[in-house]
């Protein structure tokens, strides 16, 4: 305790315990988890998601969505409420995050959990409307508007197929339409890919568990 070397060795050894348990072990074991084949179709689980969703993950990171939203359905031995509330059909496990570059587990739920939002809200149009004007879609929502991910452009002849169908309070002025930028499309593609409803060996059955409604 009274020589630097003794103190340092003691500190090193003690630090090593948590480092081994929480850094080395996860990196070497959980970090080496591989996809498993689906019993029915042979496809790989978790499913691979496309390039747009991969780009969308970076938007999710840079916009700081993790500051308000979590992405984990808790184990039922701790609480069943995540599942009963319709935020997932089974608890999340480490393998669910295999395809992500960053695990956005989150620590606070100012907004809802998003781990299964692609299952709960499978329509891209809803997400575009919601990102553009959250308060118009979910009354009383505190989510900030992401209208800077969209462009307001003059309607050229005919309305574009991609234009958002907005409610009157959020609609653009007459003669204008709201179009999603590539960032918005990527982000929504990522959100739609978020479904942890496939079965995994460590994750329990998904049969007979009712689906969720928009909540």
């Amino acid at each position: 305790m009274h020589r630097l070397t003794t103190l340092l060795s003691g500190i090193f050894l003690v630090f090593l315990t948590s480092w081994i348990g929480l850094v080395a072990y996860p990196a070497l074991q959980l970090g080496k988890l591989a996809p498993v084949p689906d019993a029915d179709s042979g496809a790989s689980l978790p499913p691979v998601y496309g390039g747009e969703a991969v780009a969308g993950q970076h938007i999710y990171a840079s916009e700081g969505c993790v500051s308000c939203h979590s992405q984990q359905v808790r184990q039922t031995s701790v609480t069943r409420i995540d599942i009963e509330r319709g935020w997932g059909v089974r608890p999340s496990v480490a393998r669910d995050y295999l395809r992500d570059s960053t695990a956005f587990l989150g620590t606070i739920r100012i907004g809802q959990d998003l781990s299964n939002v692609g299952r709960r809200l499978p329509e891209a149009a809803w997400h575009y409307r919601h990102l553009y004007a959250p308060a118009a879609v979910s009354e009383g929502s505190v989510m900030p508007s992401y209208r800077y991910l969209f462009t307001l452009s003059k309607i050229q002849g005919q309305r574009s197929a991609e234009a958002l169908d907005l409610s009157p309070e959020a609609a653009p002025p007459a003669g204008y339409e709201v179009l999603p930028t590539a960032d918005a499309k990527n982000l929504v593609a990522y959100l739609l890919s978020l479904k942890h409803d496939y079965p995994l060996p460590e994750a329990g059955p998904v049969k007979n568990i009712p689906a969720a409604v928009t909540h």
């Binding site: 069943r80 319709g86 329990g204 568990i209 009712p210």
Partner: peptide, 13 residues
């Protein structure tokens, strides 16, 4: 394995 949620609870919601 964790039991599935009670349909009556989900139905009530």
């Amino acid at each position: 394995v964790a039991a599935p949620p009670d349909p009556k609870v989900v139905g009530k919601r």
